[in-house]
Each structure stands twice: as C-alpha cells, then as structure tokens.
C-alpha cells in the first residue's frame, strides 16, 4: 500500500547546526502516528517542514504517491494537511463559529462586497461539533472563557472542518486536566475511525500507547527507530529516545 504521506531523505540545517539529516518518514491512511523524541531531537523542525512553515534544504515529499513541493503553509493546506499548534491556535475574542471559519468564511456577494453568512456558519459549526461529539453549549460563545479541553477540541474541529486528510497535533494534551486529556484522546481515536491520518507529537508515553498505531522516534536529528505499537513497549521507546540502556530492570 502506498503511504498517504512519504518523506524521503529530508535534510535541514540552521547555520552549522544540522537539525535533520536524511529523515525517511511515512504516514498511512487512517493511522495515528506518534512522533517522539527528546527536546531538540528535531520533532518541531520535521513538523514545520510537513506543514510548510519552513522548507526543507533537500529531500523529497510524496503525497498520495505524487511528488509535491511544500514551501509555504498554503501548499500544505491545499494538499489537505492541517496543523494544530500548541499555542496561538485560536482567536480569544471571537466565537466558536468564527474560530472554525476564520480565514475561510462562508460569504455571499452583495454589490461586490463579501457579506458573512453567519447563520450558515453557526449551523455548520454546530453540526461539525455534534458529529465529533464535542459538547459546547453554543457556537455563539467566545473561546476566551472556555476550558483548555474545550479550546483544544475547537482547535481540532477547526482543523478537520474542511475535508482535511492529515492533521498534525502538537502536544494536544499538554496543560490539560486528566478528564480533559481523555476527551482529547478519544477525539483522536474517533478521527482515525473517520479516515483521518494523524501525526501526534507528545512527550507522554501513556497517551502515545493509548492512541497510536506506530511510533516514529527521532534522536539528534536522525531516525532512532520506527515501531509498531504491538511490537514494542514503553521501555523500548524510552531507550530509543535516550539512545541507551538507561532503563535497567
């Protein structure tokens, strides 16, 4: 089976620092792939290359078997790759529907001016949240007053709202209470069952093992290993992350 997204020998340097060297990476359809690694291992750089925030120095990117160029966020978005950043994902003073439709509002043209179709955006937002089992009292509420879990849910809903295929989640459970973490994790599982492919960056091995199919571990800009969940255990992953037999029994 051809992978949905395939990266071939991706390299990226910042001056003298080699952030990524010869990374091969695959993401299949309807799969949750965890991207693990210590701080500075290159996770963020790899994500930025996939989401178009930073172009790679060399290497190839294939999407659905075709070679593509991803040099700016717009390129990635057009392919159907959407990123939910840890921070700065939402507009605090705007309501839920305005957040979901930010930058891609439904409009009707009146005398050349683009007027918002507010009711349509609210009803579509409501339907979207309902289909994702996200409980928010009203799409009229601003996200400023919401809990961390609700905010994360709105951010994820926003990412999947427009027929996206790949969703990149950067630490979606960080800074959340335990019940809220569970909600976000079940939302991730739900997205997989709907055919989305998800790249999950997380430091939390419990969460990784709860939702992921495969785990791609980076260490010092190189692939330390790729494991199927069924064929590995947390100790193994810790060894790959740290690069040694630090976990003694």
């Amino acid at each position: 089976m051809t992978p949905l997204l395939k990266l071939n020998k991706i390299c990226k340097s910042f001056g003298a620092v080699r952030a990524l060297s010869d990374i091969d990476f695959e993401l299949h359809e309807s799969e949750v792939l965890a991207l693990a690694g210590d701080n500075g291992a290159g996770k963020s750089t790899l994500i930025k290359i996939i989401s178009g925030a930073q172009p790679a120095d060399s290497g190839q990117i294939f999407f659905e078997g075709r070679e593509v160029t991803v040099r700016k966020p717009e390129d990635a978005r057009q392919l159907g790759i959407e990123t939910v950043y840890q921070d700065l994902a939402l507009f605090d003073d705007s309501n839920v529907a305005e957040n979901i439709f930010a930058g891609r509002e439904s409009v009707r043209n009146i005398l050349g001016a683009k007027f918002l179709k507010a009711e349509e955006m609210h009803s579509r937002s409501k339907a979207l949240l309902k289909s994702l089992n996200i409980h928010i009292q009203s799409t009229q509420f601003t996200v400023k007053g919401m809990s961390g879990g609700q905010r994360q849910s709105v951010a994820i809903a926003r990412a999947v709202a427009f027929g996206r295929k790949v969703v990149i989640l950067d630490e979606p459970t960080a800074a959340l209470g335990v019940p809220e973490q569970e909600k976000v994790l079940s939302l991730i599982k739900d997205l997989r069952s709907r055919g989305f492919s998800i790249i999950l960056i997380s430091h939390n091995l419990h969460h990784i093992f709860e939702v992921c199919d495969r785990i791609h571990v980076l260490r010092q800009g190189q692939t330390a290993g790729v494991r199927k969940k069924a064929e590995t255990d947390p100790d193994d992953i810790v060894k790959l992350i740290t690069g040694g037999n630090l976990v003694a029994h």
């Binding site: 700065l88 939402l90 507009f91 003073d93 930058g103």
Partner: peptide
Amino acid sequence: CLVGDNPVGAHRSGI
C-alpha cells in the same frame, strides 16, 4: 477583528 485578536493565528489561517 481576527488580525487584532491574534496576528500569528490570522496569518496561519491564510489571512
């Protein structure tokens, strides 16, 4: 409004 609320987010949203 979006630009005043969160310029980085607005940029990422294609505005």
